[in-house]
Nucleic acid binder design. Structure first.
Lengths: 208, 208
DNA sequence: GTACAAGCCTATCACTGATAGGAGACACGC
DNA sequence: GCGTGTCTCCTATCAGTGATAGGCTTGTAC
């Protein structure tokens, strides 16, 4: 009656589940994938998932976190390049990541986690960007450093603001391209190229 | 046993449901509101909702559509103003709407409708913006006209691209502010002011 | 051998959106 | 009067969701 699933290495199950979930998320979209689908594909019962993860959200978070580690790894812009070129590379990296890992991006930035309310961090400063434990936001720290080098004329608050504006502008196009694929978009490549150009311009056109 | 709900005007029920749903959406967020909650507040049974709407998505869509009609009405920028000023007003209107009706914005642009796949409209052109039946996208037609007046040097495709870039940049900040209220944002007002300035700059800084 | 801890199972929970089928209310034509 | 529809609503119920309870089996430590 009880067929114990043959000998996978002990904690290989967790990895197995994550790999399966990642594949299913990419194939059907995060929101359409159920715990029963994941379990069936892994070859275990649905409740068995809860021996490895506390909830389906924890699975989603882990998948997203790992994907974002790729972004961070790739985000290493060439240190010796001019700041201007670094910004260009950073923007390109961000687009590239968002569009090649739309499901990870969706989990991290598009889905709403009804999270436990975080305690407010009122005296937020530049370091807070880097302090966030999620690799996605941490990447914002890199972006902020590049912008700081390009705009030493701004004070810290101004650099924070500008970083957030740049991030928001980048996020906007990626989010819309992911969530509204049916919209009659202009040619995707030239749209992204134009947007990248304009975003860089947001940073560098100080004296209007 | 059967207490027929006393005499509301005939098709007042539909309006009643929409008003209740709107209130609940604003209070708890679209995704947290269930059909049973709506029905209980209206004073009817849950299945009775389906006499007026085919699905909960239809309720959400109707609520969102009506809210966006407000945007469109408000979007009437003063016709005699300079194009530059019109752009500024348009950007301000969009922000104002997105942040005062976050649930409507969420329904229209943040939630993913697993819609019936729309037929691809390959030879898309400027008119397609206005042809979309949702007031939200229709508002993009207004934005595009303003941009066209500011950038007559661009061909139609270039104006389409620029409009989409501007929309994406606006959307990005609104989307993040709505979905990530816990992020350590800079001061909200100055952040929006800065973003608005930079978005306008995207349009007007042709010759770099 | 015995105790213990993983890892997995079946059975079941509360909840979701949605459907089936019938009951009461009202308007029409006769 | 009396059918006949059409609306609107009801109760009962469905399949599917994420999550939990409690027991069975396996492998390891002593």
């Amino acid at each position: 009656m009880h067929k114990p699933n043959s000998g996978l290495p002990k904690s290989g199950r967790r990895e197995d589940i994550l790999a399966t979930a990642t594949a299913l998320f990419s194939q059907h979209g995060v929101q359409a994938v159920t715990t029963r689908q994941i379990a069936a594909r892994v070859g275990i019962s649905q409740p068995s998932l809860y021996a490895h993860f506390a909830s389906i959200q924890e699975i989603q978070d882990e998948v997203s976190t790992r994907a974002f580690a790729l972004l961070e790894a790739r985000f290493a812009v060439s240190a010796e390049a001019a700041p201007q070129e670094q910004l260009r590379q950073a923007v390109a990296s961000y687009f590239d990541f968002g569009l090649t890992h739309p499901e990870a991006y969706r989990i991290a930035f598009l889905l709403e986690h009804p999270k436990a309310p975080q305690k407010a961090d009122e005296d937020w400063n530049a370091a807070a960007f880097a302090a966030l434990d999620h690799p996605g936001p941490r990447t914002l720290g890199h972006l902020r450093r590049i912008i700081a080098r390009l705009r030493p004329d701004l004070d810290a608050a101004g650099q924070d603001r500008l970083t957030q504006c740049v991030w928001a502008a980048l996020h906007g196009l990626i989010a819309l391209l992911i969530t509204r694929p049916d919209f009659p978009w202009a040619d995707r490549d030239s749209l992204i190229a134009e947007h990248s150009r304009l975003v860089c311009l947001m940073v560098t056109s100080h004296v209007a």
